[in-house]
Amino acid sequence: MASKLETEELTRVVDGERIVDSVSVRIPTAEVVAVIGPSGAGKSSFLRLLNRLDEPTAGTVYLDGRDYRELDPLALRRRVGFVPQAPALGSGTVADAVTVGDRLCDNPVDDERVDRLLERVGLAGYRDASVDDLSGGEQQRVAIVRTLYVEPEVVLLDEPTAHLDENTEARLEALLEDLIREEALTCVVVTHDTDQARRLSDRIVRLEDGRVTQVGTPQEVIP
């Protein structure tokens, strides 16, 4: 299958430390790749490089075979969406948070899409609710909808269920699994939870000290 995203010797050095070290991986279209590894392995740093929230010190990323440094960073980020670990929704209503990508770019807001996506994540009727009144799980779902609203070709998820209680985590994970399969999304999921990685992904990349130490199917990487 053709690579949607491909990293080539992707490296990021901060204060002399190689937090992402020569990572070369392929992320095929409509495949879910989980990135696992111990704390401080460089998982989140690697993810931030994929939509150029941080700048690689060396190496690059190819999106549909094109070096992403040739693309406008704003256009790149609409194609490669990022759901951060903390929802960071700001203040205002759920609809404000979801449509921020259009509102601040003076694009027309697609109300139908907002309603459809909110309904899909179990938040029908929440569009006018204040984000401050939502639970942690609900806020995380709004953050996912905010990313999906701009119709990205790739979705990057950074510890999507971290900081949630067990029940909420299970429900959100089930929702993610459904969304990914139904929408045939190309996904990169960073998680510290190996069971979650096994359940959600088609392939797993294990990082340690910024380097890839293992790549394979869930069965190969997590026996």
């Binding site: 939509n51 704003l74 980020r77 929802p87 990508g101 601040l104």
Partner: peptide, 21 residues
Amino acid sequence: SNRAEIEAVLSVGVPPERVVS
């Protein structure tokens, strides 16, 4: 204090000057 929010909005393709307006 708003770094996470600023980066979240940058991540949906909003230009920096609009993000921090």
